[in-house]
Design a protein around this nucleic acid. Structure first.
Length: 803
RNA sequence: GCGGAGUUGCUGGAAUUGGCAGACAGGCAUGACUAAGGAUCAUGUGUCUUAGCGACGUGAGGGUUCAAGUCCCUUACUCCGCACCA
């Protein structure tokens, strides 16, 4: 009886061996491949089987690249600043520096159980001053480039986290982290001018090998639209109101105008008799939270009493205020064409405002529109434009208007500048000094890092002030510019600050002179494959692109997109597709499974549960299947390794088919079918051992190499047992030969009218006539009608069409 | 409301992109073996059936085709993203 598969022994053996003899080293000759996992936050609850999946996928890919002769950069580190870490610390009553360090140690241990080829020499941690020195350095560079600026404005405020939030962090009017309703708060903020990069962020999406879904989400988030700004004179005085519209072609149909309640002219446009009503409306709108504003489906509004003049036809249009118009998009004012816009239509109906149709399906006016007509058609009631095709009008009218001095073509974006300051303790201090005389002055680059002071009381104040405010010995300083007494900025950076550029630092993490050396940046960057969940589609992934473009502009790196290829793995959920969480009590820890079945089994099962890009429900029972599979392979190899079987044609054929199957499926990232394919072939090998008494060594060695990226310990052990030299990962990925994969005989289906009636074995290269003749023989008794057509799909099917 | 993805046995899923639907697993059933400790092996497992080498079958309904899970139209449901962006 051969030795049974003992995962504990084997895994321990190879873990120790790899520690002493790393399998992935940069010899300076191999081409590089950078395979990166999204930056984990060292959470207090540790890893669950869902986290595992992403790391297994990236490790399989990394090991596959190693076997293809690459030096693979496969680093890991910790996104340890920010709200979640601080909230956890507050909850546990420990200082965040302490809890963060503990969590990192714990998760690192768990990650080591995956047996991934992480290069821990490259490890980074955002809370390390040697790291955040460069996070601050980038901010200073941005400040000097005019991209970081201060502004007092109403921002998203989370009353539970007690801090301001970026637009990207507000989901359905709620805080992305804690789910509390987000309110508005007027605060002085540090902003990053990401809008300056809007066009590049949009256009360069074309360069990226990313899931279309993510590109679409970024495109929509940037939200570029083409339109025109048109000035409407206010009747009876010399004021004008500028509106933004994407449909200047419908100008003849504009029957009213709406301003956001926050619009700077809102109050002054109110006529005396309307003043009280208008001010009341403005006040009420200001009290609404963003959630209320989203949920109020019914339109509200107030007439200002003023009228504007439609510049195309001199018509008098009433000016209204309504909160369905956003103050910070376009000009904060719109012209309303109720006949062709659903929102304007609803508003006009509610307040009895006239509706003028200017596009019609058949060129005729519909006297009783029950809803806005938003389809293309023929222009009507539009003076000189009447009779034009509306699509043509949409394309040409803006130019016509512009040439006549009515309006100016313009573009708009939904993307807003990035609210970059947080009123919290656990983040990078913003390296700015406020001087009465010199204003905001950056901390000199040579004085960085500006370290976060150690304090006892780090709880958020809730007032909009940072807890750092009270540390007077830290706050009080002198102006780097004039030397006068000055105060430090007390806001900190958001969690995203470190994660927006960390991937650059991995390749040169000990450099104390530069963020990354030019040489290393050129040789080792950018990231070739980035693997992580889809939840960062408009947060981290947009911010990182912005940072990279900025660093490209100032000459730090020589590429302007950080992640060439992106793969989003699906989530592993609990029963009924419920997201794993501590509060739901459905978290499955990998620890027991690793212990019971071994790392290799869990790795395989993580892949086998389903297509890697889709969500999968975790069903623990299934792991028995892959465990049995590993046992079968083990038994086949142990059984045959000393037998010296000569390779038959059949064995060679099967070997090449196996290489083909595993390689093509792996290249397509169809990792679940790689495993099922491996199982299928293994079953054939088992049968072959039974029939032929064994399998040749070359085939067995091929199995060991092909299995190694997925089950690395098993791969190494089999390789060694088979007498292979060195590590299995020092071998090269086997190549298949299509000629050797060919079968002499193939089985095809014989159909009558598309229904399979029999199967037939034929020679692989047999001619059509011969195949059809044989097929007819097989189903002779069923050929009772007139044969009208005979179809042969080579190697697949014969279909006899009968009447 | 708009946009995207999806719906296949008891369960997870497969199907070389229009060519034998249900691979591979899990589960279950029957049997073998058992000094068994998360065993292993064999066989079976879509539905109906008058038990045949028959008929039906990929959310529902229609269509194209010699041939449809796959293409087209209509429709239902599920999940995800955006959500008054003029």
């Amino acid at each position: 009886m051969a030795t049974p598969y003992n995962h504990k022994e084997i895994e321990k053996k190879w873990r120790d061996n790899w520690a002493a003899n790393p399998v992935n080293v940069n010899d300076g000759k191999k081409p590089k491949y950078y395979c990166l996992d999204m930056f984990p936050y060292p959470s207090g609850s540790g890893l669950h089987v869902g986290h595992w999946r992403g790391y297994v996928i990236s490790d399989v890919w990394s090991r596959y690249k190693i076997l293809n002769g690459y030096y693979v950069i496969h680093p890991m580190g910790w996104d340890a600043f920010g709200l979640p870490a601080e909230n956890y610390a507050i909850k546990m009553g420990v200082h965040p520096s302490k809890s963060t360090a503990e969590n990192v140690a714990n998760i690192k241990k768990q990650i080591n159980d995956i047996a991934a080829v992480y290069d821990w020499d490259l490890e980074v941690n955002t809370t390390d001053p040697e790291f955040y020195k460069w996070t601050q350095w980038i901010f200073v560079k941005m400040f000097k480039a005019g991209l970081a600026y201060e502004k007092e404005m109403p921002i998203n405020w989370c009353p539970s986290c007690k801090t301001g939030l970026a637009n990207e962090e507000v989901v359905d009017g709620k805080c992305e982290r804690c789910g509390s309703d987000v309110t508005k708060k007027n605060l002085r903020q540090w902003m990053l001018k990401i809008t300056k990069y809007a066009d590049r962020l949009l256009n360069d999406l074309d360069k990226l090998d990313w899931p279309e879904k993510v590109k679409k989400m970024q495109t929509d988030w940037i939200g570029k639209s083409y339109g025109a700004e048109i000035d409407f004179e206010v009747e009876g005085n010399d004021k004008t109101v500028k509106v933004y519209t994407t449909r200047p072609d419908t100008l003849y149909g504009a029957t009213f105008m709406v301003l956001a309640p926050e619009h700077e002219m809102a109050k002054e446009l109110a006529t005396d008799d309307k003043k009280a009503e208008v001010e009341d409306y403005i006040y009420k709108a200001s009290m609404k939270s963003s959630v209320d504003r989203l949920q109020d489906k019914e339109k509200t509004g107030v007439f200002t009493g003023s009228y504007a003049i439609n510049p195309i036809n001199g018509a008098k249009v009433p000016i209204w205020l309504s909160d369905y118009v956003l103050a910070d998009y376009g000009t904060g004012a719109i012209m309303c064409v109720p006949a062709h816009d659903d929102r304007d239509f609803e508003f006009a109906k509610k307040f009895n405002i006239p509706i003028i149709q200017v596009i019609s399906k058949d060129g005729k006016e519909n006297p009783d529109l029950t809803q806005a007509y938003t389809e293309p058609g023929i222009m009507i009631n539009s003076g000189e434009f009447s009779g034009m095709d509306s699509n043509k009008a949409k394309a040409e009218v803006p130019d016509i208007l512009q040439s006549r001095g009515i309006g100016k073509k313009t573009v708009n974006y939904k993307l807003r500048d990035w609210v970059f300051s947080r009123q919290r303790y656990w983040g990078e201090p913003i390296p700015i000094v406020h001087c009465d005389k010199c204003g905001a002055v950056p901390v000199p680059e040579e004085e960085l890092p500006l370290t976060l002071p150690e304090v006892e009381a780090y709880q958020p104040t809730g007032t909009g002030e940072s807890p750092l405010k009270d540390i007077t010995e830290w706050v009080n300083t002198t102006c780097p510019c004039c030397g006068a007494p000055a105060k430090r900025e007390t806001n900190t950076m958001p969690q995203w600050a470190g994660s927006s550029w960390y991937f650059l630092r991995y390749v040169d993490n000990k450099n104390d002179k530069e963020l990354v050396s030019k040489q290393k940046a050129h040789d080792l960057l950018p990231v070739d494959m980035y693997i992580g969940g889809v939840e960062h589609a408009v947060l981290h992934l947009l911010y990182s692109r912005f940072y990279t473009k900025f660093l490209y502009d100032i000459g730090v790196v020589d590429f302007d997109e950080p992640f060439t290829k992106l793969f989003n793995q699906g989530m592993i959920t609990g029963k009924n597709g419920i997201k794993m969480s501590k509060s739901k009590g459905n978290v499955v820890s990998p620890d027991d499974l690793v212990n019971g079945y071994g790392c290799d089994s869990l790795r395989l099962y993580e892949l086998f549960v389903g297509p890697p890009e889709l969500d999968s429900e975790w069903d623990e029972k299934g792991i028995d299947g892959v465990y049995r599979f590993l046992n079968r392979i083990w038994n086949v190899v142990m059984d045959c390794k000393d037998k010296d079987i000569e390779a038959t044609k059949e064995m060679i054929n099967l070997r090449h088919k196996l290489i083909f199957t595993i390689s093509t499926r792996l290249e397509n990232f169809s990792l679940n079918t790689v495993i099922s394919g491996f199982m299928e072939f293994t079953n054939k090998f088992v049968a072959m051992v039974k029939e032929k008494g064994g399998i040749d060594k070359e085939t067995l060695k091929t199995i060991a190499i092909l299995l190694a990226p997925f089950a690395p310990h098993m791969g190494e052990e089999l390789w060694q047992q088979l007498g292979g030299e060195g590590s299995v990962f020092a071998q090269s990925w086997p190549q298949y030969d299509e000629n050797l994969m060919k079968d002499d005989e193939v089985e095809i289906a014989v159909q009558i009218n598309g229904k399979t009636k029999a199967t037939l074995s034929i020679g692989a290269d047999e001619a059509k006539d011969s195949v059809i003749a044989k097929a007819k023989e097989v189903i002779a008794d069923k050929l009772t009608g007139n044969v009208v057509k005979e179809i042969y799909v080579p190697g697949r099917i014969v279909n006899i069409v009968m009447k």
